[in-house]
Simulated assay, not measured.
Amino acid sequence: MFFKGNKEALDLLGNAATIGTHLVCSTFVGMAIGWYLDKWLGTKPWFLLIFLLFGIGAGFKNVFDEVQKIQRKDQGKGPGSNNES
């Protein structure tokens, strides 16, 4: 396997996939909620636009939270630290 001995490369690949998934899924969920509300209430395109913006905002918040989590995890791995795992 290509990544067999390289745990750091697998971690980076997993982090990139997680961040991309957060952004895309949040956007589509917001868009779907807005589309269904517009269809149900006949208010085209207002709820679609509003919930699309909410979805994009939620995606960026999730990406920000994930990056913060990665940074906290990597703080202990710097040079001179005793916390090597």
Rank of each mutant, 00 (worst) to 15 (best):
S26F: 06
W35N: 11
T43F: 08
P45F: 00
L23S: 10
M1F: 08
F64P: 02
A17N: 05
G34K: 02
A58N: 04
L41M: 10
L53W: 03
N6T: 01
E8C: 04
V63S: 04
V24K: 12
L52S: 09
A32M: 08
F51Y: 09
F28I: 06
G20Q: 00
F3G: 11
D74G: 07
N6I: 04
L48K: 10
K44H: 10
A32S: 12
G80A: 01
Q75P: 01
H22M: 04
L37I: 15
M31C: 11
F28W: 07
M1V: 08
A58R: 06
N15K: 12
G55L: 00
T43V: 10
K61S: 07
E84Y: 10
K44V: 11
L37V: 14
A16P: 03
F51V: 03
P79V: 07
G80Q: 00
S26L: 03
N62E: 15
K39V: 04
N82T: 13
F54N: 01
G34P: 03
N6R: 03
Q68M: 15
G55E: 00
A17C: 05
G20M: 00
S81H: 06
A17H: 03
K7R: 06
G5P: 03
G14K: 05
K4C: 05
W40T: 15
L49G: 08
A16V: 11
K69G: 05
K39T: 09
A32T: 11
K4S: 09
L48H: 07
K7T: 08
W35T: 15
F47S: 07
K77F: 13
P45W: 00
N15Y: 11
L23T: 08
D65Q: 08
F60Y: 09
V24N: 07
G14S: 08
L49F: 13
V24W: 08
G20N: 02
N6P: 01
K77L: 13
F54K: 00
F54G: 02
L10M: 14
I50N: 04
V29W: 05
C25H: 06
F2R: 09
G59Q: 00
S85N: 15
Q75M: 14
K69A: 14
P45K: 00
N83H: 12
D74T: 11
W46T: 14
Q71G: 05
Q68K: 15
E84T: 12
P45T: 00
K77W: 05
S26A: 13
F2M: 10
K39E: 09
T18I: 06
D65E: 12
P45A: 01
N6F: 08
N83S: 14
N82Y: 08
S81M: 04
G5T: 09
W40H: 10
I70W: 05
Q68I: 12
G59K: 00
N62T: 11
K39G: 04
L48T: 14
T18G: 13
G42H: 01
G78I: 13
L49H: 11
L49W: 10
C25Q: 09
K73S: 06
L12K: 14
D74F: 10
L23H: 05
I56A: 13
T18V: 07
A32P: 03
E84Q: 14
